[in-house]
């Protein structure tokens, strides 16, 4: 699918810092990316990469203090066609955007639902709030949404409580809730991480189907590269609070230009081709050595330099800029051209 559409959300130079007793944690340190209408952008990263803080910054859900959006802008075009900078938007206006224009689903469907309200009340709340519907109308919308996300017997389920549902069902309820006001942007923060693979397949299938029907954009935050390959049009790879690579999903998987992306792709087990053959020595995964950097104590240069097998002296001197490698592909590595060479050789 190609998306020639206009930009829905543009994050420019976003910096979200946290003031802790041990010092300032620069969770997001100058992040720039955009999402077009109808597009799915995957933000990939490990714990501490800043991917979740980025999404919470867009929703303005960062607890302040200790958090603080230090710098940057988040330009979002709402359903009314007006572009706003979410960083400076007054809270009252932000509240109108949240749940209406932008909605979010979280990793833990168990903890994101209120156990003492019925499913219908929880889905209907946003509908009443944003669309001025009555309680009765909102329950009708809720029933309709439950039907849309494939929950059997929605008329009955709408009056049930979260504990009466399984994990997969609860995530469907979360999706129903998020989509009840027809958002322009859905932020999905590790929506399938807590689910089993067969249920994950159901949920991903559902999200794809609903995106085609509703035409929303999806910001998909995940660490699972299999899910990325399946869902994304474009990919942003984050490491140490910065974007280290950005590009079209096929480019990122087939011709990565940043050693971290390459390392991630090599370290995932691939079903099938590597399965152990009796009598033969077992294959090994290619691991990235070392640990995810401590956000309080990031290296002065490239944050990946201490773990990078391609690191040279210049890497530890300054944070490399994002190089445009062509075709909308960007990489924050001073040696990107050499990898391109290597790729060409491999392909030839």
């Amino acid at each position: 699918m190609t998306h020639q559409g206009e930009v829905l959300l543009a994050v420019n130079g976003l910096k979200t810092y946290f003031n802790t007793d041990d010092g300032v944690v620069k969770s997001v340190d100058g992040v720039t990316f955009h999402i077009k209408k109808g597009e799915t952008l995957a933000v990939v990263g490990e714990s501490g990469s800043g991917k979740s803080v980025t999404s919470l910054s867009i929703m303005r859900l960062i607890p302040m203090p200790p958090g603080e959006i230090k710098d940057g802008e988040i330009l979002f075009t709402g359903k009314d066609g007006v572009q706003r900078n979410l960083v400076t938007l007054p809270e009252a206006e932000m509240r109108r955007i949240r749940g209406n224009d932008i909605s979010m689903i979280f990793q833990e469907p168990m903890t994101s639902l209120n156990p003492v309200y019925t499913i219908g009340d929880q889905i209907g709340e946003a509908v009443m709030l944003h669309q001025g519907k009555t309680k009765r109308e909102s329950l009708e919308v809720a029933t309709e949404m439950l039907r849309l996300v494939g929950i059997p017997a929605p008329e009955k389920r709408v009056n049930e409580y979260p504990h009466q549902m399984s994990g997969g069902m609860r995530q469907r309820v979360m999706i129903a809730m998020a989509l009840s006001c027809n958002p322009a942007l859905l932020i999905a923060d590790e929506p399938t991480t807590a689910l089993d693979v067969t249920i994950q397949a159901q949920i991903l299938d559902l999200m794809r189907k609903l995106q085609q029907e509703i035409g929303m954009s999806i910001l998909f935050i995940t660490h699972n590269l299999g899910v990325v390959a399946e869902m994304a049009d474009r990919v942003v790879v984050m490491y140490g609070g910065r974007v280290v690579e950005e590009g079209d999903v096929v480019e990122i998987f087939k011709a990565p230009r940043h050693p971290y992306t390459m390392g991630l792709l090599n370290s995932i087990p691939r079903a099938g081709d590597a399965a152990h053959v009796p009598g033969q020595p077992k294959q090994r995964l290619e691991a990235i050595p070392g640990n995810v950097p401590n956000p309080l104590n990031l290296p002065p240069g490239c944050p990946f330099e201490p773990r990078c097998k391609f690191a040279v002296e210049a890497c530890s001197e300054a944070v490399p800029p994002l190089f445009d490698t062509g075709g909308g592909h960007m990489a924050r590595c001073i040696r990107w051209q050499e990898f391109e060479q290597a790729q060409v050789e491999v392909n030839a």
């Binding site: 067969t198 990325v228 096929v250 998987f253 691939r270």
Partner: peptide
């Protein structure tokens, strides 16, 4: 059901 890490 397991997603394959290959977009092609």
């Amino acid at each position: 059901a397991a997603p394959v890490p290959d977009p092609t």
